[in-house]
Amino acid sequence: MAVEERIVGFESAGEELHGVVHVPAQHPRGTLVFCHPFAEEKKCSHRTMVEAARAFAAEGWAVLRFDMRGCGDSPCRFGEVSPTAWLHDIHAALDAAERETATTDVGLLGLRLGATLAAEVAEERHEVACLVLWEPVIDGEGYVRQNLRRSMIKAMMTRYEGGEDTEGAALEAGALGEGTVDFDGYEVPEAMRAQIDAIDLTTPRSYPGPVLVLNLGARETVDAPMQRLSDAYEQGTAAAVRQEPVWQRIGLMDATATIKRTLEWLQQIR
C-alpha cells in the first residue's frame, strides 16, 4: 500500500513540536500517535520507530511520530522540561493527529517511558481509540535506578576496554546522589527525577478502551507486573514477544515480531 510521509509542526505550550505523519493512500483505518522513549533509549530506538510507523501505514494505519519538548528536533533542552510537559505534548499530538490525518479514531502507541506517559494521557482522555504499550515503565524509581546503573556499567566497561583500572569507576558514575543525575549523557535535574520517581502504573486504571500490553524481551511468558497492569484495565490484553531490546542499543532495529503482534491485535479490535 502506498504511503505518504510528511513533516508536520504543531504547537504545545507555545512551542512548535516536530513530527512526521505517515498516511496510507486510502482513508486510514485509524491513527496511532507514537510516543517515544527518552534519553539514550530514544536515540537507540529511533530507527525502529520509523520502520514501525512505515509498517503500520503499509497496513492502512496512519501514524504520527513526534518529538516531545527537549527531545529530537523539537525545541527546549532536555533538562528544562519534565514529564508534566511531555504529557501536555501528547495531548497536543492527539489533537494534531486528528487534524493531519482527517480521522477521529486516534489511539496511542508508546515505547518504554513513552508508553507510560501514553497510559497516563489515556486516563484523562477516555475517547482515545486504543492504547498500545510496548514494554512500559511501571515503576518510576526502578527506571531511574536502571538508568543510573546503566551509566555505572558503561563507565566501568569504558575504563576496562581502555585498559585502565576499573576500581571505583562504577560508583563514581552512578552513585545515587541528590540533585541532578546523569542518564548516560542526558542531564536529569532533581525536579525531573522526582516526577519520574513518582510514576507508578500499579495504581487503578480507568481507561475503558482496548489496551495491549506487550512485554518485550527474552521471555516467552508475560512478567507478573505487566500482567497485573493489563488486568487493571477493563479491556486489557497482555502478551510476551521475544524481542531484542531495541531501545538499549543503536543498531538493533528488527521489531518485526512486535509489529506483527500489534497489527494482529489491531485487526482483532476493529
Binding site: Q146, R149, R150, I153, K154, M156, M157, T158, P245, Q248, R249
Partner: peptide, 10 residues
C-alpha cells in the same frame, strides 16, 4: 559490552 552486562545484572 555494557548493554549485555546490564542485561546480565537484570
Amino acid at each position: 559490552d555494557s548493554v549485555n552486562l546490564f542485561e546480565i545484572v537484570v
